[in-house]
Amino acid sequence: MQRRTFLRTVSAGLGAVAFSGALWQEAALAGVTRVVRGAGPYGPLGPPDGNGMALPAGFTARVVARSGRQVGGILWHPAPDGGACYAAGTGWIYVSNSEVPLIGGASALRFRADGSIERAYRILNGTNLNCAGGSTPWNTWLSCEEIFRGRVYETDPYGARGAQARPAMGRFKHEAAACDPDRQVIYLTEDEQDGCFYRFTPTTWGDLSSGRLEVLCGTDQVEWRPVPDPSPAVLERQTRHQVSAARHFDGGEGCHYAGGVCYFTAKGDRKVWAYDAARQTLGSVYDGGGTLDGVDNITGAASGDLYVAEDGGNMEINIIAPDGVVAPVMRLDGQGESEITGPAFSPDGTRLYFSSQRGTSGNIAGTGGITYEVTGPFRH
């Protein structure tokens, strides 16, 4: 498949200067889009390895778990989806949702310092179509149900405490969450064709049992308005329809906060949106003008680089660099009926975890899911 690079030129003289937060967004939005054939910051992808994964020189990959097979003492769940990493002693933990009905939930892989798997365990059970989610500054994992009147569940990646439903965060088709510690709010996406972008303000930061749910309204300069009934019981009162001025997005997906900006994807819009929280403005850092397709889960690195996983497309993870370059850093061949999910970096930034939700089988039940680790000289 074709290697691609999409360059947004920000202005003469800026070149490859790295930006973060609002400056990152301002530079990208000011740019003129043009397509450039060339390599990203890691160089071109090489030939596929034994697992069908193409990577730049200097990067290696391994399979760490497969759906329905034993790993660390449990059967790894089907349809692995959203994920995140957490420091754990000298090692780390990778958590992963399961996007299947009724038994969805989430599991965790605990790694030793040398990268070997110490054990695996469940952190959430008996929930429904757990799609994406997000981590919190107090080291919990927010697992989101992508169903009608879905809930957010706050879970413990370390497995010491039971999961708690957080209905104050709204009952809708939840996708992802991203915490903004600067304003002490949590942003939420909604996977509907006319979905909304929400902001939850806890009564007490660190306690998600109560708070205020708001919806983004307006166009470029935006405002937030309260959702009158965050837990509607009837179809006609769904959260996305309660505020007439609400801004709608086609298929809200991944969500990532860094440096004053919340980046979120909408697969129907084919955009990576950027909400500047300080200025309360909305723009985009990728508008579908290139060939990055099926924008879905998103994560970021301390370098300011964003990593966007494809749902479909040609099964790549693409980097969006602060200088505007968009290029693949990984491609899976032979898995065209799957999607890339749950990208997350280890705490030291040297390992990237993600899953192919249905693997080579393309099985809708996700029984062919594969969870990978890529190691290499990531910018961090």
Rank of each mutant, 00 (worst) to 15 (best):
R4M: 13
F6D: 12
R8L: 14
S20Y: 12
G21M: 11
L23S: 14
A27W: 13
G31Q: 00
V36G: 06
G38T: 12
P41R: 15
L45D: 08
P48H: 10
G58W: 08
F59L: 02
F59I: 00
F59S: 01
A65S: 08
R66M: 14
S67H: 09
S67K: 07
G68F: 08
Q70W: 10
G72A: 07
W76K: 02
H77G: 14
G82E: 06
G82L: 02
A84S: 13
G91T: 05
I93R: 13
E99P: 00
P101C: 07
I103D: 12
G105Y: 02
S107V: 12
D114N: 15
D114L: 08
G115V: 09
R119I: 01
A120C: 13
L124H: 12
G126Y: 07
N128Y: 06
A132T: 03
G133A: 06
P137M: 05
W138T: 04
N139Q: 14
L142K: 10
L142D: 07
C144E: 11
I147W: 07
R149W: 02
G150H: 05
G150N: 08
T155A: 10
A160N: 09
A160V: 13
A160F: 06
Q164I: 14
Q164H: 13
A165I: 05
R166K: 15
P167Q: 09
M169I: 11
M169R: 04
D182N: 07
R183G: 07
R183M: 04
Q184P: 00
E190C: 07
F197C: 03
F197E: 02
T204H: 11
L208V: 01
L213W: 02
E214P: 01
E214D: 15
L216N: 02
G218Q: 03
T219D: 15
W224E: 02
P226E: 08
V227I: 15
P228W: 12
D229I: 15
S231H: 09
P232Q: 14
T239A: 15
R240C: 08
R240S: 09
H256Q: 11
G259E: 11
C262E: 03
C262L: 12
Y263E: 05
R270G: 03
V272R: 09
W273Y: 15
T281R: 15
G289P: 00
D293E: 13
V295W: 02
V295C: 08
T299W: 06
A301Y: 00
G304A: 07
G304M: 07
A309I: 03
G312A: 07
G313M: 06
M315Y: 09
A321H: 14
A321E: 10
Q335N: 08
E337C: 04
S338G: 06
I340T: 02
G342E: 04
A344C: 10
F345I: 12
S346R: 04
S346M: 03
D348Q: 06
Y353L: 07
Y353T: 01
Y353C: 04
F354R: 01
G359F: 05
T360G: 01
G362S: 05
N363W: 10
A365S: 15
G369F: 10
I370N: 01
I370T: 15
T375Q: 10
T375A: 09
F378K: 00
H380C: 12
